[in-house]
Computed example of a mutant assay.
Amino acid sequence: MHLSLYGNFYYPIIPLEVITLINYLSYFIVGFLAADLYLEYKDQIKPSIWIDVVCIASVILFWNGFRPYGIDLIYLLLILTITGSSIYLKKFLSIPLVYIIGGMYYTIYMLHQRVMYMVLDKFMQGKIFMENVFADFTLRLVFILIVIGVISAIFFIFVERPTMKKEWWKYRNLKKLFFE
């Protein structure tokens, strides 16, 4: 930020920052590279516990923000390329509840903040349910996760999933539109 003199007053000049997809092009390229590497070498990589260790370490380092010199791209490349050859991580990602929630991620992302505001601010504001702060926090967390999950599932089933079907507007049978 720069200061500029106008008359007897200094006012800040804030440069306009434009964020575009070009700013994130490297992530797209890493995704394409990871898909290419996985398809090329998936039969040559033998499943191993070490692949689980590398994937979990990469997720933890990426999540915690340890990203000097663009190393986050390497974390992503490792995660996306070798997770398919992991042992336990692959089993975890094959659990129906996990991949269903993964499929609903955009719905959850869109709704979670509004649901939290509505539920916590309107219905739980100023109320203490337990004397222990950690127990109270845990109760609220479990409650809000259940509410977010239920509302997101309803939204996903009745709004997002039907619109993913080809020519969804032509369906006359609502049972087929929503539940098949």
Rank of each mutant, 00 (worst) to 15 (best):
I60H: 09
V98A: 11
A153I: 02
I29K: 04
M124E: 08
W169Y: 14
D52T: 00
G149M: 09
V115L: 05
G65P: 04
I108D: 05
F134A: 14
G70E: 03
D121A: 09
Y109P: 11
I95Q: 03
V159R: 04
F137C: 00
Y10S: 12
D72E: 12
S152F: 05
Y106V: 15
W50T: 02
K170T: 14
A34V: 09
S58D: 00
Y106P: 00
L73H: 11
A34C: 05
L61K: 01
I29S: 07
D121P: 00
G126A: 11
F156M: 07
R67L: 15
S152Q: 06
I51L: 11
N8D: 15
Q113T: 05
K170L: 12
Y10Q: 12
F178L: 10
M118R: 03
Y27A: 13
V30K: 01
F28I: 13
L97D: 01
F137M: 13
F143A: 07
L3S: 06
S152W: 06
E40Y: 14
C55Q: 06
V150E: 06
Y69S: 13
V147I: 12
Y6F: 03
D52I: 00
I101K: 02
G149N: 12
I22G: 05
E160L: 05
L120A: 01
R172C: 04
I56G: 00
Y75Q: 08
M104G: 02
L174V: 13
S26G: 10
K165D: 03
D121Q: 14
W50C: 05
T163H: 05
N8K: 15
L61W: 01
G102C: 01
P47M: 00
F28S: 11
I60M: 02
S85W: 09
V53A: 15
L145P: 00
Y38H: 13
K170I: 11
Y99M: 04
S85E: 09
N173D: 15
V98F: 02
R161C: 01
Y27E: 06
L145Y: 14
A57Y: 04
R67Q: 15
I82Y: 09
E40V: 13
K90W: 00
Y69M: 14
G102M: 03
I14M: 12
A57G: 10
I144N: 09
L37Q: 09
K175L: 14
Y171E: 10
I144Y: 10
Y106R: 11
M124P: 01
I49R: 08
G84C: 12
F156E: 10
I14R: 01
V59R: 03
A35H: 07
M104F: 07
V18M: 10
I101Y: 01
I154T: 13
Y27D: 02
F92R: 01
T20C: 04
T83K: 07
V133M: 11
Q125T: 08
A153L: 14
R172L: 07
E17N: 13
F28K: 04
I82C: 12
R114P: 00
Y117I: 15
V54T: 10
L5V: 13
L97I: 15
I51D: 06
C55H: 02
I146L: 13
K176W: 11
M124G: 01
M1W: 09
G7I: 06
L77K: 02
V115P: 01
I49Q: 01
M130L: 15
H2E: 14
H112N: 03
R114H: 14
T107Q: 05
I22H: 13
D72Y: 07
K166Q: 07
V53C: 08
V147G: 10
R67H: 15
F66D: 05
